[in-house]
């Protein structure tokens, strides 16, 4: 079997920069259907359309070039990443369609492995893979279009957080940096093992647990990095106090960040967040970690402070690094303050 066409800028770092994107999108006509509960006016992860008083559908899609060499693992990661948006909205997965770009002259067994990885993740999510669309293209790209359902009163919006809420992140940061270090041939096996495990893990499990608690807001951390997605959770009357010390991350990623195994996508994220963030006693390497684009990153959950310890404890049973990343406070001079 020939090698999969490896792309240096795979995964979520292949995403267009948030700044450029919002400029283009703002020019489109906005939908006005009153049954559309979550559309384009917010930065939410999926669209939600109300069908009946009890059922709304959640729609999302995501696809990207490979960030790992193993096609089966790539399929798993791309699917876990696409399915994640449903969980970030508080929904459950029902059906999925494959999105495939594949070179005509490449070994079809590779495509088979990718689709196998993706299909297994859809099954694990409790959904049905019901078809798809493929085109031939110069480089490999794969992902899913996913439909899920959610109760219209239980939608997890990005911006539902309240002052006093505790924010919990359910996967470690740094998968972009480790992937970059890997492309340069310096990533350790230990770092890669945790990175692959994290990226291929469904956010279904942390979402299921969080539904038992008073959760006010939720998003998933992907291409725009921790701070980019955190900014999407903020409203005008609140700020967040982020504690660097308790943020979960892949241990080796900090070392790679110090050695400048960083991406252009992270710099785009830094430009997007701009002066909405203020750092205090935070090293350059730590800053880069917070801007690092994540492929299939964790859920960022805003939970009532009374429920935070119990939720954290239960999430820790899932066997991935998880931690309290901050607290919502009355509005300060900037949206995000990160303390070392």
């Amino acid at each position: 079997m020939e090698d999969i066409l490896f792309c240096n800028n795979g995964g979520c770092s292949a995403k267009l920069g948030p700044k450029a994107l919002s400029k283009v999108l703002s020019k489109l006509t906005q939908p006005t259907d009153p049954m559309l509960l979550v559309g384009t006016e917010s930065s939410d992860d999926g669209a939600v359309y109300k069908l009946t008083a009890d059922i709304a559908i959640v729609q999302t899609l995501d696809f990207f070039p490979p960030m790992v060499e193993d096609p089966y693992l790539f399929g798993q990661i791309a699917a876990a990443n696409a399915l994640s948006d449903i969980y970030a909205m508080g929904g459950e997965v029902k059906t999925a369609l494959n999105i495939v770009c594949f070179p005509e002259d490449m070994d079809l067994n590779i495509l088979g492995k990718i689709l196998q990885g993706g299909s297994e993740k859809v099954s694990e999510a409790g959904g049905s893979l019901v078809g798809g669309h493929s085109i031939h293209d110069a480089s490999v790209k794969y992902g899913l279009s996913v439909t899920g359902i959610v109760h219209p009163d239980k939608i997890m919006k990005n911006t539902g957080a309240k002052i006093g809420d505790i924010l919990i992140l359910t996967k470690p940061l740094g998968v972009g940096i480790v992937s970059t270090a890997r492309a340069m041939g310096v990533a350790s096996k230990q770092a890669l093992d945790l990175t692959y495990k994290s990226m291929s893990t469904l956010n279904k499990y942390s979402s299921d647990i969080s539904k038992k608690y008073q959760v006010h807001g939720c998003t998933d951390v992907t291409g725009f990095g921790f701070l980019g997605h955190l900014l999407e959770m903020m409203t005008d009357n609140m700020s967040i106090r982020v504690k660097m010390k308790t943020i979960p991350y892949i241990p080796q990623s900090l070392e790679y960040s110090e050695e400048f195994y960083i991406t252009g996508a992270a710099q785009k994220n830094r430009n997007f967040v701009g002066d909405n963030v203020r750092f205090k006693n935070v090293s350059f390497a730590q800053e880069e970690l917070l801007f690092d684009p994540q492929t299939s990153g964790g859920l960022l959950i805003a939970v009532d402070p009374k429920d935070a310890p119990a939720l954290l404890k239960e999430l820790q049973q899932l066997d991935l690094p998880v931690g309290i990343v901050g607290e919502m406070i009355p509005r300060m001079d900037v949206s995000i303050i990160v303390e070392g």
């Binding site: 800028n9 970059t180 340069m184 400048f260 195994y261 252009g264």
Partner: peptide
């Protein structure tokens, strides 16, 4: 050259 090559080489 793809990032991070420019910074790595310059460093």
């Amino acid at each position: 050259k793809q990032c991070p090559l420019p910074v790595i080489e310059t460093k």
